[in-house]
């Protein structure tokens, strides 16, 4: 944990920035897979926190009340929380739409879901480096970096989960490594190895990682690794939120507005 704690802290800070942008006061939060980082930040804001993680040991890192649970089988009653925070913890979920629906149900009306997950563009440098090196060595390419969703899919996911006022925007965190192998060690320390079920299980060709790492572009003698995070916000629907007007209730013609004929 020690090696990657700084990344988790930075990602959590950027996500929780969105809390400070709203005037709403939150009192009961669920922290999903925050690995001891998110719960402390929420408590510092005066919010009571329940933490959940697949691993009981990880859940216990959070200090307060915690539950070992699978994101796909959440054990919380409807309306249990007014805030759900999932910082960098949903990208290993198999059924992401189902998980988001369950999280929405655990929110009280007008409760907020905040989630971050890596999207396309993450680890692009390494992905390209590995593909080029493998192509040169074997004439073929196997997937070695997990697939990531596109940003625009993320907003659609929130909508599909029945969340109102969905917003997905991007934050980029760029790492620079002087020692190339440290990048691979950090990925492993973060538990972010290749978990594709249909991945090539043969031993990678000799020299693949060395060739890929050697081929990565340098800046001032250091290589770049990009973490592109989608920051998702969505609200549990409530009557107090802005609602669309009923169809056919408009009193001004859009055509008139576009011609500039309204007073």
């Amino acid at each position: 944990m020690g090696r990657v704690a700084a990344v988790l802290e930075e990602a959590a800070d950027r996500l929780l920035d969105r809390l400070d942008d709203t005037t709403r006061k939150f009192t009961r939060a669920l922290d999903v897979g925050g690995r001891g980082v998110v719960a402390a930040k929420l408590r510092a804001r005066g919010i009571k926190v329940v933490s959940t993680d697949l691993s009981p040991a990880m859940a216990a890192l959070n200090g307060g009340p915690c539950v070992a649970a699978d994101e796909e089988y959440l054990p919380f009653g409807p309306g249990s929380f007014d805030l759900v925070v999932a910082s960098l913890s949903l990208h290993w979920v198999n059924d992401l739409p189902g998980c988001l629906i369950q999280l929405r149900r655990s929110l009280a009306p007008d409760g907020l879901l905040l989630a971050s997950l890596p999207v396309l563009g993450t680890l692009d440098e390494l992905r390209n480096g590995l593909a080029e090196a493998e192509l040169a060595l074997t004439g073929g390419v196997a997937p070695r970096i997990s697939p990531f969703p596109e940003l625009r899919d993320c907003a659609a996911l929130l909508q599909r989960a029945g969340l109102a006022l969905p917003v997905a925007d991007v934050e980029e965190i760029v790492f620079r490594y002087a020692d190339r192998l440290t990048l691979l060690r950090d990925l492993r320390a973060a538990g972010e190895g290749n978990a594709i079920r249909l991945r090539d299980r043969r031993i990678p060709p000799r020299g693949l990682f060395a060739a890929a790492l050697a081929g990565l572009p340098e800046e001032d003698g250091r290589i770049r690794a990009t973490l592109r995070l989608a920051m998702l916000t969505g609200w549990a629907p409530a009557p107090s939120q802005p609602q669309p007007l009923a169809r056919g209730s408009a009193r001004v013609s859009l055509a008139d507005v576009l011609r500039g004929e309204t007073g």
């Binding site: 001891g36 402390a40 408590r43 959070n62 200090g63 307060g64 009340p65 919380f76 009653g77």
Partner: peptide
């Protein structure tokens, strides 16, 4: 992480793993 909440710190040290009580806040929502 060294968050000292009264609810967790005043629990008398349980010796039996199974007998450690659940936080009452959890019982309300689980």
């Amino acid at each position: 992480m060294s968050d000292t909440e009264p609810a967790t710190s005043d629990v008398s040290m349980p010796t039996d793993r199974a007998s450690a009580p659940i936080d009452p806040r959890l019982l309300e929502i689980l």
